[in-house]
Design a protein around this nucleic acid. Sequence first.
DNA 1: TCACGCGCTTACCTCGGGGTAAGTCGCTTA
DNA 2: TAAGCGACTTACCCCGAGGTAAGCGCGTGA
Lengths: 120, 120
Amino acid sequence: MTYTPESAAQGVQNVIRVLEGRWKLVILFQLFGGHVRRFSDLERAIPGVSQKMLIQQLRQLEADGVVARIVHHQVPPKVEYHLTAWGQSLCPALDGLLSWAERAPSELGSRFVAAGSLPS
Amino acid sequence: MTYTPESAAQGVQNVIRVLEGRWKLVILFQLFGGHVRRFSDLERAIPGVSQKMLIQQLRQLEADGVVARIVHHQVPPKVEYHLTAWGQSLCPALDGLLSWAERAPSELGSRFVAAGSLPS
DNA sequence: TCACGCGCTTACCTCGGGGTAAGTCGCTTA
DNA sequence: TAAGCGACTTACCCCGAGGTAAGCGCGTGA
């Protein structure tokens, strides 16, 4: 596939539109590796997120074909979320962005150093 | 370098913060390939952008170390913009995003098909 | 003397993403 | 009979990204 400057910019914009949103990346990285999580699991795993925001971002990711939703008809309700195959395949692309950030010239300061909490 | 889910999300967010902005990707793709463009060149090449926006996005990209600015002290003024080496190296990473988008399942419709103008 | 080109800068407004707080629904358990 | 769990939904507010329109400073050509 070949791109003009305009169509390439468009294409990347489309991808960014999927990823931009205060909580989407955090959700994605919770789900990478084939994890399946309930709504309440995510709520607990992502400190600071509200139910409204969590649902909204999940719905958008679902509409974009990145995450999938499984409803178990029970009471109390149980809903599980996981990545689609295509969603999983985002991982290497994001890795590309991360390694670009790692190559940032040092005079930019700590702007690109991901706040390091020690590996769990 | 190793990441936790949180720090990886953070790292990608940092990159996205650099790229998100109505006109930044369009500017980047005008500059990819080592092109050097004057302010007024960019203004003409990017239909719809206002001077305020163009300057703002350029300044942010400059602050983030992605583009560089050369001022020629003349009258009328002449200022040129081009990518830094690090900025150029963004290209393959963005390609990764584009090819991910190309692999989008067809049931998502045209959401990920970059609006195709024919190659110039 | 006056307008013009170039690269900005400033003031002002609009719209929507994201935040908080509270409500809902259906079943179950004390 | 009342409280609670889990997954949402709704109403309301706020702030900042981005848009429009106009002004500025300097030297040159008409």
